[in-house]
């Protein structure tokens, strides 16, 4: 191992130990570690953006003048110039144009993403569970499949109604929405179960990272 490698390894170790100083209530060392993370990731991102996006996608096509592709490359370049103007004049109104363009593209992508990527697959999977072929096996009722399909439908509808918005007056009337309250309670059980499972998944990931970190410390100690 070269001296540079060793120094880098030591830097990584010291920085990560600074992270754990948070547990002792220290914010100075923790802050130094965090700002190092911010600085390094920002520096690296600038390089990646310049060399992998801006130069090949925005600047290089301009060399093809007077072809159409070069003229088309002027559009993002113009939008970029309007955006960069923001650096010199913080209150610039023209910077709103490229940002409006980004907002519109994002909104459209969001609409398509949530409908085609989330809503439709989720709805179809609930309905497809009611396929008669899945509810029978060898001519006999598949009770597990039947139970699962009905439970899924009831659970999803109940979860949806947990967030049903009620008028202020009606909320104060204890008896007016008893069926909705029952449905809401049923839905809350499923939300709690889901959140609990997600929580444990996150905890397990953190635990694996902690074990990997301890292994890293052991490996480092093993160098001597």
């Amino acid at each position: 191992m070269s001296t540079v490698d060793l120094l880098l390894l030591l830097a990584g170790l010291v920085l990560s130990l600074m992270v754990f100083s948070y547990l002792l209530g220290d914010t100075l060392l923790f802050g130094i570690a965090m700002y190092t993370l911010v600085g390094v990731s920002a520096g690296f991102t600038v390089l990646v953006l310049l060399q992998k996006v801006i130069l090949p996608m925005a600047i290089s096509p301009l060399s093809a003048f007077p072809q159409t592709s070069a003229f088309l490359a002027l559009v993002p370049l113009l939008l970029s110039v309007l955006l960069i103007w923001m650096l010199f004049k913080k209150t610039s109104r023209v910077s709103g144009i490229p940002l409006g363009f980004l907002g519109g593209v994002t909104a459209a992508a969001l609409i398509i993403g949530v409908t085609r990527g989330t809503l439709v697959p989720q709805l179809l999977s609930i309905v497809n569970a009611f396929d008669p072929n899945k509810m029978t096996s060898a001519g006999l009722p598949n009770w597990t499949g039947i139970f699962e399909a009905f439970m899924m439908l009831a659970g999803v509808v109940a979860v949806l109604f947990v967030f049903h918005h009620q008028k202020v007056k009606k909320q104060k009337d204890a008896f007016s929405n008893s069926w909705l309250d029952g449905l809401t309670g049923f839905g809350q059980v499923f939300i709690g179960i889901t959140f609990g499972a997600i929580f444990v998944g996150l905890f397990s990931t953190g635990l694996v990272a902690l074990i990997a970190y301890i292994q890293y410390l052991v490996d480092f100690a093993g160098l001597w």
Partner: peptide, 19 residues
């Protein structure tokens, strides 16, 4: 070498906080 231990340490710290 700098970023990975930092992010692993943060994840480990988060596990302790979650507990």
């Amino acid at each position: 070498t700098v970023l990975v231990p930092l992010e692993n340490a943060l994840m480990g710290l988060i596990a302790l906080i979650l507990m």
